[in-house]
Amino acid sequence: MLAVHFIRRELKERYRGSFTGFGWALLQPLLQLAIYAFVFVQIFKARVPGAAAPGYVPFLVVAMWPWIAFSEAIVRSTTAIQDNSALIGKVALPRQILVLAPCAASFVLHGAGFLAILVVLAIAGQGIAIAKVPLALLLYVPLFAYALGICLTLAALQVFVRDLVQIVGQLLTLMMFAAPIFYDRTNLPDRFQILLDLNPFTFYVEGMRNLLLGYGAFPWHGLMIAIPVAILTLALGHWLFRRLDSHFEDFL
């Protein structure tokens, strides 16, 4: 109940005072997509490898929207405790909620944006497997758990180590390019393949592409790893947060 209130508050706050309001939620990733699509399609002449391959735009979309939700959740949650220091020193409330709110808000916002753009792509005849959308959304469950685990860890550590937020931005960029978001696994020389397997996000990209575009095989092997990784990360984040949370106000 309280969590829902905080998520609503977070959503409201993000676009309060801006003219287009929630429109930005869709507009911003669309602009980003337009830039990437232009750079990769027009300049680098990127083409999705394989016969009967989907166009580059849907190929990029199904990987990029989950990534935006994931990375934005992490960036925003890292400073969640620090940003709410006024509340922490004065009101008794479960602090996890303060981290959960920005994390969940990012997923809600970009989840909705994802659905909207899938509908647009389907209407445009880009071969989206609408029937499999619910399955694709199911992938968001372990992704969210994984993100929340990271968010809790980073938010708690950020209270003590203020440099963290700077490092996180860099690491996320690295992680983005080290996942097959802009390219396909087959674009990469064999000796780098191992990097993709080490990157937890690879599974989500390949899973989405299989389900929504029918591109590539479903990464069953990745699923077997992704679920325990998500659970362990969440457990670790929860443990660390609980350990530190009663001391936050001393360091804010």
Binding site: L157, F160, V161, R162, L240, R243, L244, H247, D250, F251
Partner: peptide
């Protein structure tokens, strides 16, 4: 100091 904070973090963990 940042160093104090790091030390405290270690202690708490």
């Amino acid at each position: 100091l940042a160093a104090d904070r790091m030390r405290s973090l270690g202690r708490l963990l």
